[in-house]
Structure formats: C-alpha cells, structure tokens
Design a binder for these strands. Structure first.
Lengths: 346, 346
DNA sequence: CTGAAAGCGCTAACAG
DNA sequence: CTGTTAGCGCTTTCAG
C-alpha cells in the first residue's frame, strides 16, 4: 500500500540565512532592503538567499510595517480598450514607485461594487482608484475609506457630489462640439443614444448635446433620445427603433463607438447610406471606430494619460505630497476626431 | 505656525473586541470564523465588531495560516473580449470557493512575464493560471512553482512541452474546418494571416490550414502566409501587401477577428467586394465580428467556459482532489460559425 | 465551549 | 555597521 504524504514545504526565512552566515536576522533584513551597501555582507546575503531559494514573506513584512504598498482599483468591466489601457498605465506608474495593484470588476453592479469595496478595505489597500458601476447612485460605501483618510480617487465614471478628487475629460464640451459638427454638416434630426443619464459621463454628454441643439435653433425632441445599456443587443434594438420611426433621424450621436458601430450595421441593413442618409458619431476613439467603414467620427479619450494621472496623483497623496481634498477635479485634454461617418459636406 | 501631524489610525483588533466583551481573543477569532454557532457569543462578537469598525487583518491571518487563498493570473493583455471574459469566469469560481485573484499583464513581453512570475511567487499565491506572452519560448520561470508543488495551469496560449495541465480548444481542427469551408466556397488562393508561429494557438491553426489545403489538392504557397504582431497597424500593412500582389488572394483566414476586420477595410478601399472578390474568415467570435458588415465567419471561442474550467481545476488541485499532472490536456468544445463574409455560394 | 500560550516571519527601536 | 529584543494580529494546539 502506498501512502501519499503531502508535506508543506519548509520555507527559507531570513533566520536560515542568518544562521548559515553567522550574522543576525536584522542584518539580513537590512541587506535585503539595500540598507547597508558599504561592505560585502550584502553580497553574501544575496548569494545565500539565492542559494537557499529564499522568498520574501510579504505577509510578515506588511503585518510588521502595517502597510501594504498596494493600490486597489475597482472598475466596471475590464473588457474595453479604455479600461485596460488605463489600467496598464496605472500598473506602470505604481510599479515604478514600488506599489502593487489589485483589480476587481464590479460587472456594472452596485452590489458587487460594494462587496469589492469591502474586500479592498480588508485587504488594507493604501488607496483606492475607482470608476463607478453603471447605476451606482450613492458613494456611502466609500465612507469608511474617507473616515480613515485612505485616499479615494475617481476617474472617468465619477460621482458628482463628492470631495474626493475626480479625474475626467470635459464630456460636456466634447459632446457639444461633436453635436455642433453634426449640425454644421446639415443634420437637423440628431438622435442621441446613451445609457443611464445619472452617471456623469452620460449626463454631461447629454447636456452638451442639448445645449448645442439649443444654441443652433434646434428644439430638443424627446423621441430622439434613446436609452440603452450599451450591450450589443440593446444597441441593435435602439438602432431598429430609429429605423422604425416615421421620420427617422438624419444623424446619430452615440455615447460610445461600439454602439455607434452596432447601429450603423442596422442602418445599412435598412438601406440607409452613411453618412449621406444618416451621419454617425461615437465617443472614445475605440479601435473599432477605425475598423469599420466608414470610420467613425469620435472623441479621443486619453485612456493612458488618465490612468497615469490617477496613479501619479495617488502616489503623491500617499507620499504626503498632495492632499486628496485640495484639488477637486483634474480635467484632461481630449478632442473631437472627424472621420468619414459624419462628413456630408466637403 | 501650523504643524500637521499624520497619525496612523489605530485599528481595531480582535483583542479590542475580546476586552470589551470580557472573553478571550481566541473566542472572538472562532466566532468571526463561524466556528461556534451554538450560543449567542457569536452574535455579540459580530455586533461589537461592527460597532468598533473592525476589519480582518489578512496579513496576520495569512502569516499564521501560511496560506494566502489567492490564485495568481498572468495574461498577455487585458484588453480583449476573450481575456476579460475568461477572467470574469475565474473570479466568479474563485470567489465562490473563498479565493481571491490577483491579475498581472505581461504586455506580451517575456521579460515582464518573468518579473510577474517572481512577484506572484513572493506574494505566495496558492496557484497560478497563465496564458503565455506572444514570444515566450521557455517556461523555466515556472520551475520554482513546480519545485514547490504550486499548481500551474496554462490556458489558451500554452506551452507545448510541459507536464503542467493545459486548457485549450482544438485550434488545429477549427482552423482545418474553416479553411475547408473557404475551399468549399470555391476559394483557391487562401491567404493566412497569423502571428508568431511558435505559440501553440497560432502554430496549430497554421497546421490545420495547411492540412486542409493539402487534403484538397491545393499546394501551400509561402507568399500567402502573412506574419504580423496583430496590432491594428501591422494588420493593415498585411492587408496592403495582399492587395499589392500581382495575383491577390481570393480568401483570407486571419487568426483573429480584429485583424480580419482591419484587412477587410483595406480590401474595400481597394475596391474588392467581400465575399465576392475575397472571402474572409477570422477567429474568436469577438463582438467586432458581428459589428462590421458583412459579419465575419469565425470560430466560437468559449472564453467563459475556459476561465471556469481553469479556475475549477485549480480549486480541485488545491483541495487535493485533483493532481495537476494526471490530466494533461483539457480540450473545450468550439465550432466554426459561418457568416456572410465568406458566403460566396448559397 | 472557552481560555492560555505560543509562534508565523519580519522590521524598527534601541543599544553597543 | 550590527545585534538584541519586542511585537505587528491572528490562529491553533492543548488544557480545562
């Protein structure tokens, strides 16, 4: 009979290194941390550590230091070009400063966002960078961070009424500009496809859209406002609704490029030429906006810079060089990119 | 003069709860862990914990238990529908079993992958789930995990010669089928756009492509093989090269949907109709394959199931119910989806 | 069911 | 520059 014994492998600790080298654990600890560069103790320690397959125990170290050097990131979903680019930037900045990043997805659900918040809290993140879920309406779940002076930075999907810093682009201005552009192309019945108009990014764009109409003598028409959850299915549904109208729109300003693309597909199926019969504009400058024909007029969203800004600001807060409550908003540069999908005049 | 004092806020510990309740810390610990459900000590502890704003200290707990209940995930990049869907599935399975997930991106660089591996190692992950970077050619950096019997599971982008379990789809079969389909549509000069042919996913597809040609009396022609790094720019370049040929291909089988889409754009700019002049097929069933017109024939890639499988298998290994070295390959079901981009006959 | 006590591995005083 | 010592907060025997 064979008996299988699973033994937890003994880990090498700084004490093992210390013993073999006849020095104290404290010295080993210091050598490992580059704190005594003068003599060659350091080299010996490093060599021995390598030899014994030593690996640092962050649990012990963090416990002792009462500091995790970790930044938590909560985002709605990973699967957009915008989000993953922003995270790549955060990761870069953080690791340059010796911070780790832990990520969690709220999957656009406030309930899951709250759970994630609690997990981050228990994991003792030094700071939290957040882009809110689709329908999050209060930010009470971040109170415990504020109470403990753990910096919370919002980016992109932010909360309007908060003292916490928000990193955004000027959604209002860009929406205004892109709507103005459509008007300049001779469009009169401009549909707007958006999501929950409570979330800042969408409400601001909606405001910009309405203001541009107003400033150009076009009355806002409720039936031209389409709300959807931005999934493939609901974008297609919205497109179908537009096509079913007695008097269909002559332009669409969608609040992201994917939905714009999905609608364009529907328009074409109904025999509408783009931009001749209906001009289209999106938002985000997602790769898809350049993949489909005609290329989609959009707003360049500085994802990388936004991630960079969020992480840098966080690091500064943690270093005590900035206070989360002094600057309140950081508005990044962004601009409309005109492409073929909206060019009716030349 | 104002002096700002930053005082690290005192954290509530189980001792604080114990003292206030006149019980021992051990009891509090047990109550918090649902280990004494009988009497109402538990309720009191929970209430007091809430009252004092207690939060568990995972560092202390992990240190003591010598166990992190964390699974590390290393992927090339987050920004694809496939990867983020797979991760969502892993997160779900893991959290159902009380595990956390930490993610890091190799950004398609072997060097960064090695660094990430080391970080995961030091962070004492209980297991590692990996999809390899574009050009990773050895997996020595995972040796230290194998030595310590920390399970390593590869998915999608796996390494051919390893004892570690790999979770994949039948890339060869699907590529064979899709090529066969193009041949059945009357195509004779089928271009293949792929990446590094060393990475399994690409080499297998390439083999399937070649075999389908061979089985149907079509000689493989080197000039019809296009290598690129799958970025937007290089896919467009490849498309241009195809168009510049004296005798351009009459079909394209690209190894992902984005590059297929990017090439289609180029084809159309050169006045080629799809599928009449050139039929197109992609791979992955990415949302973009349904966004562009005509919709792209592709292979349905079970991202969610793959993530689920990887995480479940990992949990089983960690529970001792499975051995990473018994099953060697897990092949998930997948199939070709025929769409308009390749339908030349009816 | 509960308490006492030990120790996980590390770092930061402090002292030499 | 290095060693001694104490303790971070928790879990887990072992006793009672």
């Amino acid at each position: 009979m064979l008996i299988l014994l699973l033994i937890k492998m003994k880990e090498t600790t700084i004490y093992d290194i210390a013993r073999e080298l006849n020095i104290s654990a404290a010295t080993v600890s210091r050598a490992l941390k580059n704190k005594s560069l003068t003599n060659d103790t350091q080299r010996k320690v490093l060599a021995k550590a390598e030899e014994l397959g030593y690996r640092a125990n962050y649990f012990a170290s963090n416990l002792r230091k009462r500091d995790s050097r970790t930044i938590g990131v909560i985002i709605p979903k990973l699967n957009s070009h915008f989000v993953s680019t922003a995270i790549a930037a955060m990761e870069k900045v953080a690791s340059e400063h010796g911070y780790n990043i832990i990520i969690s997805q709220s999957m656009e659900s406030t309930a899951k966002e709250i759970v994630n918040t609690q997990t981050m809290f228990n994991n003792r993140v030094d700071g939290l960078i957040v882009s809110l879920a689709y329908d999050t309406e209060t930010i009470q779940h971040f109170n415990k961070f504020n109470e403990r002076k753990i910096p919370v930075i919002f980016f992109d999907r932010v909360f309007e009424h908060t003292d916490n810093i928000s990193i955004i682009i000027d959604n209002y201005r860009n929406a205004y500009d892109i709507t103005k552009h459509l008007i300049n192309q001779g469009c009169k019945r401009i549909a707007h496809l958006t999501a929950n108009t409570k979330r800042n990014v969408y409400s601001e764009r909606f405001k910009g859209y309405k203001q541009a109409l107003a400033d150009n003598g076009i009355k806002f028409s409720e039936p031209l406002l389409f709300l959807c959850d931005l999934t493939e299915i609901s974008a297609v549904e919205a497109g179908e609704k537009m096509m079913a109208m007695r008097n269909p729109p002559d332009a669409l300003f969608a609040c992201n490029d994917s939905s714009a693309a999905n609608c364009m597909k529907v328009f074409r199926q109904h025999g509408f030429a783009i931009p001749k019969d209906i001009a289209v504009a999106g938002f985000n400058n997602d790769p898809v906006s350049r993949m489909i024909e005609p290329n989609i007029t959009t707003v360049n969203y500085p994802a990388y810079q936004m991630g960079e800004a969020a992480a840098s600001y966080m690091i500064n807060c943690l270093a005590g060089a900035a206070d989360v409550h002094i600057t309140n908003k950081l508005i990044l540069k962004s601009e409309v990119i005109i492409r073929a999908s909206s060019m009716r005049k030349r």
